[in-house]
Simulated assay, not measured.
Amino acid sequence: MPIEAFIEQDLPQLRDLQPEEWNPLTPVFEFYLHSDFCFPVKYSERGIIAGVGVTIIHQHTAWLAHIIVHKEYRNKGIGSIITQALIHAAGKPGVQTILLLATALGEPVYQKHGFKKELSYIFVKRDEEIILEDIPAVLLYQANFKNELLKFDYEISGEDRSKLIIPHLNETRIVVDQNTIQGYYIPTLQEGPIIARNEKAAASLIQFKHATGITKAAFPEINIHATQLLTDLGFKEYMKSSRMYLGKPLTWQPAKIYSRIGGNLG
Rank of each mutant, 00 (worst) to 15 (best):
E199I: 13
W22N: 07
I68H: 03
K146Q: 12
H168G: 07
K76I: 05
P93F: 05
V138H: 04
P108C: 15
K92E: 15
T61M: 11
Q228I: 08
G77I: 04
S241L: 06
G192C: 03
I81K: 15
G247M: 05
H66A: 13
A137D: 14
L14D: 06
I214V: 13
I67Q: 01
F29A: 02
C38R: 06
H58W: 11
T103I: 05
E30S: 09
Q59K: 11
A89D: 13
I222W: 00
N75Y: 14
L169M: 08
A226Q: 01
E20G: 04
Y121F: 15
D36L: 12
L265T: 06
E45A: 10
K42W: 10
M239I: 09
Q142L: 12
P254G: 00
H60A: 06
F31H: 13
I49L: 02
N147K: 12
F219A: 00
H168W: 12
T188F: 11
K248D: 13
D16I: 01
E107D: 03
P254H: 00
L140K: 14
I214Y: 05
E237A: 14
K146E: 15
Q84T: 14
G192I: 00
G91F: 12
Y43G: 04
V175Q: 00
P167T: 07
L101M: 08
I195F: 11
A201F: 01
I156V: 13
Q142H: 09
I156E: 10
N264Q: 10
I81Y: 14
I214T: 09
Q9F: 05
A143F: 08
L233Y: 02
E118P: 05
I186T: 12
K116G: 05
T26P: 00
R126N: 09
K209M: 07
G263T: 02
L100G: 03
P254N: 02
L119H: 14
T61I: 05
K92N: 08
C38T: 11
H58Q: 09
R197N: 15
L230M: 12
A202E: 01
P24W: 06
G247Q: 05
S44Y: 01
G51V: 01
R15C: 14
A202G: 11
K151M: 14
I224G: 00
K116F: 09
R126P: 12
R74E: 09
L246Y: 12
N147G: 05
N223K: 08
T26L: 07
L101T: 10
M239T: 08
G94R: 03
Y184R: 12
R173M: 11
Q190I: 05
M244G: 01
G94F: 09
I3C: 12
K216H: 08
T188G: 12
L150W: 11
H66F: 08
R260C: 02
Q18M: 09
M244T: 01
K92A: 15
D160Y: 05
G266P: 06
D153C: 04
E155Q: 13
V124P: 00
P254K: 02
L229Y: 10
I165Y: 08
P40W: 06
I135G: 10
P108K: 13
K42H: 07
I56C: 07
Q18R: 03
E107P: 03
H210E: 03
Q182V: 00
